Every structure is written in C-alpha cells, then in structure tokens.
Simulated scan of single mutants.
Amino acid sequence: MKKIVLSAFAFLFLFSCSNDETSTTTEEKTLVTHDHRGCASHEVYEEQLRQNPELAQKMEQIERFTEEAIRNNTAKLVNGKIQIPVVVNVLYKTAAENISLTQIQSQIDVLNKDFNATNSDFNQVPAVFSGVKANVGISFVLDAVYRKSTTKTSWGTRDAMKKSAQGGLNPTSPTTKLNLWVCTIGGGILGYAQFPGGSSATDGVVIDSRYLGTTGTATAPFNKGRTATHEVGHWMNLRHIWGDATCGSDLVSDTPSHNTANYGIPAFPHYSTCTGTPIEMTMNYMDYTDDAGMYMFSNGQKSRMLAIFASGGARNSFAQP
C-alpha cells in the first residue's frame, strides 16, 4: 500500500472524464462515442488556473485540513449521518436528451447503494481487499429537477451548462445542495466534477445523458450509474486511483499503487508494475473500468471524503442539520 503524499495538486482541480481520448481543446466538441473511459483533466485544469491563479494555494489548504482531520480522527459522520439533497438540471435539444424522472431516480438509487455498500456487486470484492472495503455512509435524496430546452448540440467542458447567461442553468443553493447537470457534453465525454474549493457558481457534477442511471438513454458499458458515483467521488475530494501519473499517489493510504488507469473489466488479479508489484484495486470506483467492473470504495477514501464534511471542512455546510 502506498504512502499519502502531499503533492502539487493544482493540476488535479477539475476532473473531466470521458470515453477514450478527447481533443486538446475544451471548447464545444463533436459528439463521439467510444468503448472506454479517458480524461482531459490537465487541459481543464489549465483553463481553471488561468481564470483563478490562487486556486492551487486553496487546494493545498484543503489538503492540509484533510490530512489533519484524518490524523485526528475528526473525519467522521456528524450525528452518524449525512444526507445530500441533489438538484438535477436537465438541458436538452432532443426528446431523448430530456430524460425521464424514472431515469433520474435510478441514478439517485445507484448513488445510495454505492455509497452505503448495498450495491449487489459489493460481495464481489476480492478477499485481499475485504479488510479495507468501505461503507461510506452518505445518502442522497432527489430535491428538485429543472429542465430547459436549448439549441446546443453539445456543451463542452467550459461550464457553460452551469450558467444561465450562456444558455444553461445556474446552480441552486450550491453550498447546501449537490447540483447535477445532465446534458450532451460532446467529445465522448461521460462527465466531470468540480473539487471542493472551487467557485460555488460552478460547483457540482456534469453527466452526459447517455451515461446517467440504469434505464432510458443509459448506454452500455456505462449504464449502471457508476459515472455519477465516480464523479461524486471527485466532488468529495477523491483523486483517480492511479494519481494521474505513472505510479502516482491518490493521497489515500490503503489503495495499491496503480501504474495507470485500467479499462474494460480486467481479470483478477491484475498486478501493478509499480514498486512491489501490488495487486491493483481495479474494482475501485475511482479507476476507469466499465461500470460493471467497479464496485467499491476503500476505508481510506471514506476518511478522505468525510473530512470535507467535518467542522471547518470545505463542504461542512452539507453536514449541518
């Protein structure tokens, strides 16, 4: 297992997760569909940093708080429970993009299962990881659904969908409600999330309508709602399990070092090429496997997520009664 390392995380601010490779611009992209996930996180980070040069320092402050909360055992649930209201903002051009309430609720159901270890595939976690598999204990409730017809074919990753002035929908009460935008992103992108520490005006998660929930327009192999589980993990301050670098650190102590992202559904055991050649936790939600191939968080990831809801944490307002 790897050590937690305080690294330069500025390049990790905003994760933009996609199927396969994307182009080198974050402008509106041509709709593309591929068969595995990929990421354009560095280009999105560069744009965020240009807009807010102080972002890197703020992220470092959040990381220091997170490490201290975990060390002092204050990274735990307030009153044993956190329930997060979710506002879903649907932006559609076609009838298919105007997804049903049933499809939206199916995604809320998946989040509740995945974050409470009641997902039916949780029992598939290999014995080698049974001691670290986690019940995060955070629940989600659908608070509201807002819909808006648009003329846009795709939205890109510049947060236009989050801004009424650019044809999107402004977030609703983003300091106490998780805003989730559903739209056609383009470029084969499944979704992306904003880490704690960014502007409340753009805070939340974006998911392409073809990869949300388990019914309706949900498209295999990303039709089990795990894109949102992955992105909400980012929203709760989790990094990709390979640390976005060869044998990088995800700042979690109980996840094995991964040499890079995994795709599809790797056969178990899948060994890393990193020091010690550990068995990789390919079934972790923060890898890039297909929806059917990911089904666990670790205890270390749980502590990291709960730290942001602790007193003084970046998302403590969500934990208030």
Rank of each mutant, 00 (worst) to 15 (best):
M1C: 07
F11K: 06
N19Y: 11
E21T: 10
S23L: 13
T25C: 12
T30F: 00
V32Q: 10
T33A: 12
H36S: 07
Q51N: 14
L55Q: 11
Q61W: 14
F65P: 15
T66E: 13
A69G: 09
I70S: 12
N73W: 03
T74M: 10
K76G: 05
N79R: 10
K81I: 13
P85A: 07
V90R: 12
A95L: 12
A95D: 12
N98W: 03
N98E: 08
N98P: 11
L101F: 01
Q107K: 08
L111G: 07
L111Y: 08
T118D: 06
N119K: 11
S120M: 06
V125Y: 09
P126W: 09
I138F: 07
S139M: 10
F140K: 14
D143Q: 14
A144R: 08
T151I: 09
T151Y: 05
R158S: 14
A160Y: 15
K163G: 04
S164R: 14
L169E: 00
L169Q: 00
L169R: 00
P171Q: 06
S173M: 09
S173G: 08
W181P: 00
I185S: 02
I185D: 02
G191T: 03
G191K: 04
P196H: 01
P196L: 01
G197C: 01
S199T: 01
S200G: 00
G204F: 05
G204K: 07
D208N: 15
G216S: 03
T219F: 02
R226Q: 14
G233E: 05
R239Y: 12
A245H: 05
A245E: 05
S249C: 05
S253F: 12
P256K: 13
S257T: 15
A261C: 10
N262G: 10
P266C: 04
C274V: 08
Y288G: 15
F297P: 08
G300I: 04
Q301N: 12
I308W: 03
F309R: 13
F309N: 13
A310L: 10
G313Y: 15
N316G: 10
A319T: 04
